[in-house]
């Protein structure tokens, strides 16, 4: 379960302008839920996701994952926690260009204990996203859609209980978008996993079990579904 209480992230820009990227957000995502946060570009969705994942330090408020306060941990404890509990899928292609597809998928196991049969598991995940034949290719040899599928496989490598997906379908054509969303749905159902996805695409709301909208850093209380 994910619990956000009074979560804020404010930036001070030059000229002393205060930007409230995320402001006093309260949110609870139950275990096994597929929560979708929708909003326009610049509404603070991505910042919220990075706060949930412990990648950005909040200005105020708390993030509890499975009852553990993320920001009460040391950096190494938090990193280990992230490696074992959370899988990320980013809006932008985020594979390491110097590693093959297979090694990119294996990469999270560097930071996690107790992942068995790393090679076999990585190949199985590539099989799941339909890219096993590209295992030895480099990211630059893949399309954006294929890279996002690899990133999804990588996010699942350590068997995380939570998957955070940031605009996983942006910059994709309709067919690829559908393909990615089916995979995400499968990841959610077969886990079962808690899934938080942010997107600006209103057409995707049907995949989620709960939808919230975000505007100017504020999460609305109105449910879209």
């Amino acid at each position: 379960m994910i619990e956000l209480r009074g979560l804020s992230k404010h930036y001070r820009l030059s000229g002393d302008v205060l930007v409230k990227a995320v402001d006093k957000v309260d949110l609870t995502v139950e275990e096994g839920e597929f929560a979708m946060i929708i909003g326009r570009s610049g509404s603070g969705k991505t910042t919220l996701l990075s706060l949930i994942g412990g990648l950005t330090k909040p200005t105020a408020g708390s993030v509890h994952v499975d009852g553990v306060d993320l920001w009460s941990m040391s950096d190494s404890e938090q990193s280990r926690f992230r490696a074992e509990k959370i899988g990320f899928v980013f809006q932008i292609p985020s594979l390491l260009p110097t590693l093959t597809v297979l090694d990119n998928v294996k990469l999270p196991t560097m930071f996690s204990r107790g992942v068995d049969k790393v090679g076999e598991k990585a190949l199985a995940l590539l099989e799941m996203v339909g890219l096993s034949e590209k295992a030895h290719a480099y990211p630059s040899q893949l399309s954006v859609g294929q890279q996002k599928r690899v990133a999804l496989a990588r996010a699942l490598m350590n068997g995380p209980e939570i998957v955070l997906a940031d605009e996983p379908t942006s910059d994709l054509d309709k067919a690829t978008e559908l393909e990615i969303m089916r995979l995400i749905e499968k990841v959610h159902e077969e886990g079962p996993r808690t899934l938080v996805m942010v997107t600006h695409n209103l057409e995707l709301v049907n995949y989620a079990t709960r939808v919230r909208t975000m505007d100017n850093g504020v999460l609305s209380k109105s449910a879209g579904q």
Binding site: D75, S79, R82, F90, S94, M110, F111
Partner: peptide
């Protein structure tokens, strides 16, 4: 920095 960010998100500590 892109790679560094990815490694951090996958669980790599600042020390790593």
């Amino acid at each position: 920095r892109g790679e560094i960010g990815v490694i951090r998100s996958l669980g790599g500590s600042r020390g790593f």
